[in-house]
Simulated assay, not measured.
Amino acid sequence: MREIVNCEDTQVSRAYGALSENNQLLVWYAWAQGMGDTVVDMPLDYKAQSEVNSILSQIENLDFEGQISLLRQVAGDMGYSPVDPVPSQEETGKTPSL
């Protein structure tokens, strides 16, 4: 997970970086499910910092599509890929052509 979050050039991070953003989001969902079930659960006395609660509150206030878009973007910004993303029309000012 750390390699992916830090965008390190490793085999695991490259494999993650090659996935679509939807599949990257699915990876994090599966890991989150597994963490509480099989790896480690939250301690009963755990209290999140106020910054964490603030961010979670802001995410919860988004509609469903907004939440998914935000989380997909966050998941997509992780991992390593030697391929640069294709610039958007907004970035280049040019329309796509055949």
Rank of each mutant, 00 (worst) to 15 (best):
I68F: 10
V5W: 08
V86A: 15
S81C: 06
V39P: 13
N53S: 09
A48N: 05
M42S: 02
S88W: 03
D77V: 00
T92L: 06
F64Q: 12
S50R: 03
G36I: 04
L62N: 09
D9H: 06
W28V: 00
S20P: 14
F64Y: 15
S13W: 03
S57R: 08
Q67N: 03
V5G: 04
V86W: 12
L71M: 15
G34H: 09
P96R: 13
S50I: 13
S97I: 06
M1L: 12
R72W: 01
G79Y: 07
Q58E: 15
D37W: 12
P96T: 02
Q49L: 07
T95R: 12
P43V: 08
A32S: 11
V52I: 15
Q73N: 14
I59W: 04
Q33H: 10
V86S: 13
V12H: 04
D63L: 04
V27W: 08
M35D: 03
Q67I: 01
V39F: 11
R72M: 06
V39M: 01
S69F: 11
Q67W: 04
D45Q: 12
Q73H: 15
I68G: 00
I55V: 15
P43Y: 09
T10Y: 12
N6F: 14
S97T: 10
Y16I: 00
Y29T: 11
E90T: 14
Q49W: 13
R72E: 09
S81A: 05
N23H: 09
P96K: 13
S50Q: 10
L26I: 06
E21K: 11
Y16C: 07
V5Y: 12
N22Y: 07
Y16V: 00
W28C: 00
N6H: 13
